[in-house]
Design a binder for these strands. Structure first.
Lengths: 198, 198
DNA sequence: GTCTATACACCGATAGAC
DNA sequence: GTCTATCGGTGTATAGAC
């Protein structure tokens, strides 16, 4: 194999790990499975990382940092806040349907981090990131609908994140689009009620 | 060790497995950890079960069958539907706080089942059970508040289950009671809006 | 730096004595 | 039926040749 800087090996392994976790679950993301996915030898793994745990930690940090706006408000003129939020949640649902394995991987990584005290902060950081993205979506939506959040927008964001998680789990288990859309509609209702017209 | 009927061994092992999964996570619930928890030898395990997978399947079936009313409406006279639902969700939150490991175990078992096609039906059954319990709660609440669900109660139940999942994940990660209560309040709002006064 | 070969722990599962 | 002892396999991690 060619000589590759350690930093490139690290990111190649992280990407391979993400693919393995998405496709087969974190329990199956062994060092052997990851190096096979990356086309490397086992020794190269331990040249780039001290341990599997170190890789998983970096994997979580990477996917969290990369996480993009999930609930993107679709700004069509004339829509009220409830409609904007519902269309945003439906967009998220499309995103989930397009790559369910990725969202399942995110959930598994959260649970994994929750299981050890030293990794718990990674889960907290993950949800802090989710909350930041939610704040951004909520501000855009309120601006477009000429509304004002009655509670601090950070508090509303927690609610949006929770609703999104519920939507995700429900769809992953049942794969029932109609049920998921009903959840999205109810969630949009609830959130819209947390704002006043301006 | 005394001679114990196979059925008793099986249930003792299932109970031990639940404790191990709750305390340390499903990844750590090895046959050795489970028999140590149950005070048995490794061979006794394989006398009672053909395989670890068979035990896990029975564990999931057992906890699902045992799952009790989680969101119990607290019927105080004079409360409207929104208040009844919110108090029910707050009761669930207390239940979650009293035994977070158990709820985390339920989530992990769901994810575990989702990862293999032959076990996916176990997750579906788990959520069907949740939905049944939710239907029951919603019917009691609507009756007490003299309200009528506008949509089929089964559909509203899906929304309640999703909201409960979101509440669970949020609290497990952040352990933030105030944020969780805000989620409960918003969820109760959304659900109450899905009914009409009678 | 990268490889093959291997150490060593632990996994699920079984053999065979009692 | 229940045990101890052990098998074969796989996991993480490392040694040592190149």
């Amino acid at each position: 194999m060619a000589r590759i800087p350690a930093s490139e090996r690290r990111s190649a392994l992280v990407e391979a790990a993400l693919r393995v976790v998405s496709r087969r679950g974190i329990a199956q993301a062994t060092t052997r499975a990851i190096v096979a996915e990356a086309g490397m030898s086992l020794a190269s793994f331990h040249y780039a990382f001290d341990s599997r745990d170190e890789l998983i930690d970096e994997l979580i940090a990477t996917v969290v940092a990369r996480e993009q706006q999930a609930v993107i408000p679709d700004l069509v003129p004339g829509q009220d806040l409830r409609q904007i939020l519902e269309s945003g949640l439906l967009r998220y649902l499309e995103h989930l349907k397009a790559d369910p394995d990725h969202e399942q991987a995110m959930l598994e990584l959260t649970q994994y981090a929750l299981r050890s005290p030293e990794r718990h902060p990674l889960a907290v950081a993950q949800y802090r990131r989710y909350a930041e993205l939610a704040v951004h979506s909520l501000e855009i939506a309120a601006e477009a609908a000429a509304a004002t959040w009655r509670a601090p927008v950070e508090e509303v964001a927690h609610v949006l994140v929770a609703f999104t998680d519920g939507l995700t789990l429900t769809w992953l288990v049942d794969r029932d689009d109609a049920a998921a859309r009903a959840v999205a509609r109810a969630a949009a209702d609830a959130l819209a009620r947390m704002a006043d017209d301006r």
